[in-house]
Simulated assay, not measured.
Amino acid sequence: MSRLSYLKVKNSTDTSADIYFYGDIVGDEWEKWCDTDTCPKDIIDALSEAQGKDLNIYINSGGGSVFAGLAIYNMLVRAKGKKVCCIDSLAGSIASVIAMAADELIMPSNSYLMIHKPSNMVWGNATEMRKMADDLDIIQLGIEDVYKNKLKDGVDIETIRTMMEDETWLTASEAEKYFNVKVVEGNKAVAKLDLNNLKNYKNIPKEFKDKIQKGGRDEHLQLDNELKNKLQIELELLNM
């Protein structure tokens, strides 16, 4: 599968199409590490293919580039047709911003929303480092503006700002207290997400780590069984 083919609109009908965010959010094609990573150009192509249809958006991503994610958010907001987003496992960091582009945001009961302050690396003198801190504060204001559009009545943005300061992981039921989210019954099947992609986050819930690690063990067990079956068939053929 080529990188460009992953985000092609799936399950397209006359009136709707499915789009998946199942990897990191990156700035361009050269920044992709795997087929599931997504950049703004992918969304331009996908929306062009969807031709104004209703969009079913599925997210399982720990985030990535702030500016790429904001560009994707704005493109989805401008897109014609109704947009329904389902967080299959995690919408973390800038992926949580992309989720807010939907007219209807759905979270299975076993999914997560993670919000935190934007971060960056900087090399330079004291003046350059202070400027980066100021720039990050401005960037955060843009992210907060997105969250404001999905806040439940009575929830103040200051509450969300404090949660961002602490890097807050919200279960579906917790997210429903602050954002306009529809909670549905969780699927027992766990959407795959590599824990290595979340290594820079400090407050990953233990149950979320356990869920991903168990999924990885189950996947390895399945691969081991497939290898054993293949070897068994080859041995039987040799004995024929």
Rank of each mutant, 00 (worst) to 15 (best):
M1R: 03
S2A: 02
L7V: 15
V9L: 13
K10G: 00
K10M: 04
N11Y: 00
N11C: 00
N11E: 01
D18F: 02
Y20N: 10
Y20H: 03
Y22W: 04
Y22H: 14
W30V: 14
E31F: 12
C34P: 00
T38F: 00
I44G: 06
I44V: 14
A46Y: 08
L47V: 06
K53S: 11
I57Q: 10
I59H: 12
I59T: 13
G63D: 11
L70A: 04
A71V: 07
A71W: 07
N74M: 06
L76V: 02
V77E: 05
K82T: 11
V84I: 08
C85A: 05
A95H: 02
A95Y: 10
S96Q: 01
V97L: 15
A99R: 09
M100R: 04
E104S: 03
S109N: 06
N110A: 03
S111G: 12
I115M: 15
H116D: 12
S119V: 03
S119D: 14
M121A: 12
W123R: 14
M129I: 12
M132V: 02
M132R: 10
A133C: 04
D137P: 00
D145W: 12
V146D: 07
K148Y: 13
N149I: 07
N149F: 08
K152R: 14
D153A: 10
G154A: 06
I160P: 04
M163P: 09
E165S: 14
E165M: 14
D166G: 00
A172T: 01
K177S: 05
Y178F: 14
V181M: 03
K182E: 11
K188M: 03
K192N: 06
L193F: 12
N196L: 11
K199T: 15
K209G: 00
K209P: 05
K211C: 07
G215N: 12
G216E: 12
R217N: 03
L221Q: 09
L231E: 11
Q232H: 13
Q232E: 10
E234W: 04
